[in-house]
Design a protein around this nucleic acid. Structure first.
Lengths: 107, 107
DNA sequence: TAAACATTTCGCAAAATTACGAAATAGAAA
DNA sequence: TTTCTATTTCGTAATTTTGCGAAATGTTTA
């Protein structure tokens, strides 16, 4: 008897978060913004990273769309910061998914 | 003065691990195999999951290629298990990357 | 107002991902 | 040996990802 399973929402959420982190540039940006609550401008990143402005812009858009960062207009710049609430959700989700305690089941 | 940065290896590794986890089916498989050191067959998975055999096979191949699972022939089946060593590396990498302690810098 | 600046959006192309069914492979059972 | 079973590989197609340069947007400065 076959019992097809709808993949649980928490695992689907892990996959969405993982997808947001599946490119080195996005991992770099998230690391930078999540460390010491720092923020930065697109221009800072384009100077550091080995990609052009429009490609960077798309990565920022994707992270924004995933809810992991947010941009605040500080003309003529846009200041990007981590979205603390959702970053915490990502942390919690991975914490639950991975077994950091490495607990062994003891009988 | 522009200082282009080569993205550090540890962040690139996070991106590779995240990519392996960027599809719900693969998240499901890793969860299943990493919990209670269980192993399973391709046939078990294809009965549970909403994809066909060949698509599943490709996901298994991808996880194998990422080093996260390994297959052992147990004819006529192939028994898939988590690769404990690399799964531990993934755990450590995410543990370092994410800030699970949520420590605040206190002055 | 015009020129300069920061960033995004558009249009495009190359490459990767995802999925399927058919065919291939390999071992087990008859 | 032939047949069955479990799984993978192949060929193909649709979709997504990634990146670039050019053009557009909006703001500041001259």
């Amino acid at each position: 008897m076959v019992k097809k399973v709808e993949i649980p929402e928490d695992l689907q959420q892990i996959a969405r978060f993982a997808k947001a982190m599946s490119h080195p540039v996005r991992v770099y940006i998230l690391k930078k913004l999540s460390t010491r609550n720092s923020c930065c401008y697109s221009g800072d990143l384009v100077d550091e990273l080995p990609i052009g402005r429009s490609a960077l812009s798309q990565h920022l858009k994707e992270l924004k769309h995933a809810g992991l960062i947010q941009g605040e207009i500080e003309a003529p710049f846009i200041k990007y910061c981590i979205n603390k609430e959702n970053w915490a959700k990502l942390n919690d989700a991975f914490h639950d998914y991975l077994n950091f305690e490495h607990e062994e089941i003891k009988i």
